[in-house]
Design a binder for these strands. Structure first.
Lengths: 367, 367
DNA sequence: GCGCGGCGTCGAATCGATTCGACATGAAGG
DNA sequence: CCTTCATGTCGAATCGATTCGACGCCGCGC
């Protein structure tokens, strides 16, 4: 168990000097630096996190607070977790997992016992016990998803609305006047801010901006029923059980473009499209909105991608910034220490979508 | 920032007494215990993890080492992560995430800096840099998945082989003589120990044991092509491109049962089955082998479930046990401290499958 | 020639818990 | 009555780093 004193002894210096070599808050001669480095390498010295933390009250650890109910069932959440871990590593932090059960008791314990410098709260949508905890403890935190009180804590989110609007704009620019927007299933629509509702809102905005007609259809899990729905709306746009939206012109003509919004995989959607008898892209232009960068099946199609990795990095950066802000303003002045500083450092960030052309270009409609 | 001295002062005792109240290694009078508890509650005292760790060299943290390549793309991995977290909490531990990139550098750093007491290595299948790290550092660890050297480290795994054999036995007991085993896609079959290969091996063992005929078919992602394959083998068992296996008797009769092995979701498989024109369970008994307990779509069908939660709990228990073993035998005797003790504490655990009858009973074949 | 400031290093205090040896008290036993 | 022992509590050392004040040395300027 090699300590800083062993290193100091071997290098012929004082322990404090060894510390200064690493933390660089005082100047060190090149000669000394070299000798210390040599001793460190020879002994395989690695500082103990607990000792470092006890003295400096910095853990270099972030807590990742998972929502308990949603869990990691959805594969997108899993990608968030691993991406946040990578982002944290890049910023010199490790990641501690806390699952929030009753009253977010895990997060509270981690904060109180000083196991982390800040927290990243995943999948925050509605009122959330985790938010109460970090505010009560004045614990630095950054959120993925919009909290009820948007100005209390820094948050980030994927801009599903802009993604949908972008897809509509691009298709309109390519000459399409009549499109179908395939939104997530009805079940997904809960809470004013669900990504499903925001995507639909974006599609409507795009329709308004461009004057194109956009019909919204909700997806279903069963491929056969999905094919039926698509047949209905694609064969005779505006009819069937679909709810029309932003229908400006285009009259009774059949839609020439389909926009698919799905948080993760599209495997089972494309077969349903071809099952309608329409050929892609000859008869129908298809644009996919999603979060999976590596999905080879949909590489050929033009895509609007929501960059999960960027989101993960940004939310991690915000969390670290919140921790730094709390530390810097550490002077316990007249006002209570944490609250005001947190409020000042609050930042919001909607991660913009990225347009990927795909291998096949966006085909204009054939008349 | 309330410390143990504040509590001691308020309770009118020495700091050490407060510590003994919690750690209970010495007897404390009921009166003193009450006064200390009162002070703790009044002040909201929570011990600092770093101070506790520095002195006792116990972190009460487990490291969860994710495979970098596989990531959490698969939703099953995500469930592991959250289940391990719950299990760790239940045993009084928190969970630190490390993603293993080059040379498992994250895991090494966590071990060396004393951030965790032990590690859980997820999705270990082949040679793995993480194994080298924990062995080199004599760091306590338990694995999910079988390592190349099965006796070096404690490991656990789901018993896919027994699950498949169990499914065959149950169907045979219900009177079925001719079955089809739908295995994961060909891509999944890599490494001698992949769950796909073990499932197939189990099906063959079941066939041998019961004398039933079992035809193995590999799944494909595309629903249409999957339906084709199923039609081929179910309509005319033993023909087509499927590779026959364990075909004992049953002759040219059509199979009466289908076993579906899939690690997670089966949504897209059942529609393909009905697309063949066969009715379930009138014409065909279907048994599903999988890991999802909550999947409502397949609740009706008889299932063989691989209990992920049990696996997560057991592997966590093994990791904690490994940490305890290392600590207890801490006397640095003639032999090096870690190696022998780890070897002694090695335990393996194949998590047995659970048979769930489903709402509809296992139908016998109608002749 | 002397003072002064900056650079590089050291010694020691400190963070907040755990844990060991010591000790006071009261009961049990010779 | 004096020892022995168990019980309950305390004081102090300790874990391994960080960080502040002090100080020696050297070069520069007046």
């Amino acid at each position: 168990m090699v300590t800083i004193r062993d290193v100091a002894r071997r290098a012929g210096v004082a322990p404090s000097t060894v510390s200064y070599v690493f933390n660089g808050s005082r100047s060190i001669s090149e000669e000394t630096r070299r000798r210390v480095q040599e001793a460190v390498d020879a002994l395989g010295y690695h500082p103990r996190a607990s000792a470092r933390t006890l003295r400096s009250s910095r853990t270099h650890v972030l807590a990742l607070a998972l929502p308990r109910a949603a869990g990691l069932q959805d594969s997108v959440d899993g990608r968030f977790a691993i991406d946040v871990s990578d982002a944290a590593n890049g910023l010199g932090y490790d990641l501690l997992l806390t699952t929030s059960q009753d009253k977010a008791e895990g997060l509270r314990r981690v904060a109180l016992s000083g196991l982390a410098d800040a927290a990243v709260l995943m999948a925050v949508d509605m009122e959330d016990a985790r938010i109460d905890v970090v505010r009560e403890l004045a614990f630095p935190a950054a959120l993925i998803g919009r909290p009820a009180d948007e100005d209390a804590l820094p948050w980030t989110d994927l801009d599903w609305e802009e993604a949908a609007a972008l897809a509509v704009r691009e298709l309109a620019a390519a000459g399409h006047r009549d499109m179908v927007y395939l939104a997530p299933g009805e079940r997904e629509v809960e809470g004013r801010r669900s990504y499903a509702l925001r995507g639909i809102a974006g599609a409507r905005r795009g329709a308004r901006t461009t004057g194109a007609a956009v019909t919204v259809v909700h997806s279903v899990a069963d491929p056969a029923r999905l094919a039926d729905r698509l047949r209905t709306v694609l064969g005779d746009a505006g009819g069937g059980g679909a709810d029309g939206a932003g229908r400006g012109d285009g009259g009774g003509a059949a839609p020439t473009a389909l926009i698919v919004q799905h948080p993760s995989a599209h495997h089972h959607i494309l077969p349903s499209v071809t099952a309608t008898g329409l050929r892609v892209p000859e008869d129908l232009a298809v644009v996919v909105i999603g979060t999976l960068p590596g999905d080879p099946a949909s590489r050929a199609l033009p895509r609007v991608e929501l960059p999960v990795e960027t989101l993960s990095f940004e939310v991690t950066r915000l969390a670290v910034a919140a921790a730094d802000a709390l530390r810097e303003g550490g002077a316990p002045s007249v006002t209570e220490p944490g609250a005001r500083l947190l409020a000042e450092s609050v930042g919001h960030l909607l991660i913009p979508p990225v347009l990927l052309p795909g291998t096949a270009p966006l085909a204009p409609p054939r008349h």
